[in-house]
Computed example of a mutant assay.
Amino acid sequence: MFTQRTPRVVAARRLQRRRDRDATGRFLAEGPQAVREALRASRVRELFATGAAFERYPELTRDATPVTEDALASLAGTVQPQGLVAVCEAADVPLDRAVARTPRLTAVLAEIRDPGNAGTVLRTADAAGAAAVVFAGDAVDPYNGKCVRASAGSLFHVDVVRERDPHAVVAALRGAGVRILAATGYGDADLDDLADAGELAAPTAWLFGSEAHGLPDDLLAAADRRVRVPIHGAAESLNLAAAAAVCLYSSARAQRSSR
């Protein structure tokens, strides 16, 4: 049984650092849900499991490597790990390839640095039917452990694109006939009004900025519309994940109705 000092465990533990993830093109996925989706996507290169995990998840652990509880804990990013950690292959999709598919719904995470928020928006985008999620500018690493956990396996369902230049993302999507909508609390267009007018049915990319600072002015100016989610009660605002869910599902519903 492998321990914390076993070379393969030591090598896997290095993937907790971004520089090692970038150098190897691999990352860690923790827990049964993430491991299940990684296996379905044929992205698992090595799977570590405790004795308890072998008993609890026999369908996932047929080819797993047994490790001690301490070794598993050293690989996990949670206080109470669930006994499974996989070394997975990253599979970024180039921007031009993702755009060539003319996705009907795309989420662009511009300068979002909080991994929990990014992973939650990625999960929401997947649930709403988005084909691609773009991490643009100085955004968080999508393979950060917290981001992977927050995505709950959705990281393996959508095209994940990383592009340093947010304006290149906007230009590529617009060139493919995709409408660019920027989500902002100060937008001049109301989301409900756009939905009522039938303006959400076209292929759409939503731009989302960080919860603390929102979208930069130049990206707001580059969008076709700047859209606010209406607040019908007394709340000051919605957090990023909630606003993204409202926007993405509004588009998904409009697109479904149009078909």
Rank of each mutant, 00 (worst) to 15 (best):
R149F: 14
A242M: 06
D224R: 01
A245M: 04
I112H: 00
A150S: 15
A195R: 14
A107G: 14
E211W: 14
D126P: 03
G137H: 11
G116D: 14
L219Y: 07
G198L: 12
T102Q: 15
G77M: 03
R164V: 08
D70L: 14
R174P: 03
L47W: 02
G31I: 02
R149M: 10
A131C: 05
K146S: 13
A241T: 04
V10F: 04
Q33L: 01
R40K: 05
L220F: 05
V140F: 08
G177H: 11
H232N: 06
D193I: 09
E37H: 02
R14Q: 15
A73C: 04
V9G: 07
D190E: 09
R17A: 14
W206T: 06
L219N: 06
P115G: 02
S154H: 12
A73N: 02
V246C: 07
I231Q: 01
I180Q: 06
A221G: 13
R26P: 04
Y186I: 07
A205D: 02
R101W: 11
G187S: 09
R14S: 07
D165V: 09
A23Q: 12
C147F: 12
V133T: 10
V227Q: 00
L155I: 12
L95G: 00
A235F: 12
T106C: 03
L60G: 01
R179V: 12
A110Y: 13
A245K: 06
T68A: 04
V93Y: 08
F135A: 11
L155R: 15
A205V: 06
L75Y: 01
D224A: 07
T106F: 07
A64N: 02
S250E: 09
A189F: 15
A205G: 02
A11M: 04
G198R: 12
S251H: 11
F2V: 05
D126N: 13
V121M: 05
S258R: 15
F208I: 15
G187N: 09
N144G: 04
S258C: 07
S251L: 06
R226N: 14
A130M: 08
A76T: 02
T78M: 11
A243C: 02
N117Q: 07
R259A: 11
D192Y: 12
E46A: 10
R174K: 13
R56N: 08
V133Y: 06
C147N: 10
F54G: 02
P32I: 10
D193C: 08
R18Y: 06
P142K: 12
R179M: 08
R179H: 15
L200I: 11
D20W: 15
A201M: 03
T106S: 04
A234E: 14
T65I: 13
E30D: 04
P81W: 11
G177P: 12
R174Y: 10
H213A: 15
A172E: 05
S237G: 08
D159N: 12
S251M: 10
R225C: 01
D159Q: 14
P94T: 01
P216Q: 00
V35G: 00
D196I: 08
A201D: 10
A98W: 13
R26G: 04
G185S: 11
A53E: 00
E211G: 11
A202K: 07
Y57H: 04
V160R: 01
D20T: 01
Y57C: 07
P216C: 09
F48E: 01
D20P: 03
A41E: 01
N144Q: 15
V85L: 01
E236I: 03
P58C: 02
R226T: 15
A71D: 00
A132D: 07
A110W: 09
P66M: 01
V99S: 00
V79F: 11
